[in-house]
């Protein structure tokens, strides 16, 4: 969303031009700060063993081999990948449905007991549930070591709920009022009016939830004993850090470590541009004004 729409033929002042250039320079420098380590990860992952041994920091590729990647693919990657994908998708869908529904409900100023509900939700933000009580309830519901444990115990994120609620409370009341007058039910309003308007925030929160599910590690380790029900991140981290234990029997070279990392985030990275379209553009503006 450019500040200077092409329609307005205003003369750019000198300071404005300097600002634009400085801004671009700054962002390019920032990107370099980000790219150097990421670039190092990528080229290390395709380098030969001998090029990554010792304390080296590769800045340009010395060799190219996909050996590390092939090893990961041989090592039960697909099964764990599919399990993680399925649970992440189901989890994300459920989370989004729960979050948007609750977020909408809480954004309505005339909801009975709204303050109480908000207070309860703020409490969950402040009072942290430790891993032990959480484990005890998961165990109480007979969920430990089942597929449910992968996504149910961490279904809601208060963080995301509050973001959605706040975004939705900026939607003009008049939009909904007119729909109500037309005899539209609350579900209809949510579906036909709110969701289209809220696409940018829903996209952002979908991404957050998906990444949350995708990268989940500690909870999986704590709730699941059976490796066949473990997710990709558990497998990948096991492969990546097995060399670090005192009694480890295998040597893990950096190229393998980095390949593991790339394989762990590649699926989300592929998904990213598709979701990004929705939260980066101001395309939705029209619909807000109705």
């Amino acid at each position: 969303m450019p500040l200077l729409p092409r329609s307005t033929k205003m003369r750019e002042t000198l300071s404005r031009r300097v600002f634009v250039i400085l801004n671009i320079v700054f962002l390019i420098v920032l990107c370099i700060v980000y790219i150097v380590p990421i670039w190092n990860v990528v080229i290390t992952s395709v380098a030969d063993d001998t090029d990554v041994q010792g304390n080296v920091y590769l800045l340009y590729p010395k060799s190219f081999t996909l050996k590390a990647y092939l090893r990961i693919l041989d090592g039960g990657y697909f099964k764990a990948f599919m399990l993680t994908l399925v649970t992440s998708v189901i989890g994300t869908v459920l989370s989004i449905v729960f979050t948007v529904a609750a977020g909408y409900s809480l954004s309505q100023k005339n909801l009975i007991g709204r303050r109480v509900f908000m207070l309860l939700i703020t409490i969950t933000l402040i009072f942290d549930v430790g891993i032990i009580p959480r484990y005890i309830v998961v165990s109480m519901y007979k969920m430990t070591n089942t597929y449910w444990a992968i996504f149910i115990p961490m279904l809601m994120s208060t963080f995301n709920l509050i973001i959605v609620r706040n975004y939705l409370s900026t939607v003009p009341e008049s939009l909904m009022e007119s729909a109500r007058i037309d005899g539209c039910s609350e579900f209809g309003i949510l579906l036909r009016i709110i969701i289209p308007v809220a696409i940018p925030i829903i996209a952002a929160v979908t991404l957050f939830y998906f990444v949350l599910y995708w990268n989940r590690y500690t909870e999986i380790v704590m709730f699941i004993n059976d490796q066949t029900k473990s997710t990709l991140q558990v497998l990948l981290r096991t492969l990546m850090f097995e060399g670090d234990s005192a009694d480890s029997r295998v040597q893990i070279f950096d190229n393998f470590k980095m390949a593991v990392m790339v394989m762990g985030m590649l699926p989300v990275l592929v998904l990213y541009p598709f979701i990004q379209r929705y939260f980066i553009s101001g395309l939705m503006l029209g619909s807000i004004k109705g």
């Binding site: 409900s105 005339n110 909801l111 609350e186 579900f187 949510l190």
Partner: peptide, 11 residues
């Protein structure tokens, strides 16, 4: 109100 509460219930 009922609809709003139903929407809130799962969460």
């Amino acid at each position: 109100q009922a609809s709003l509460l139903i929407l809130l219930a799962p969460a």
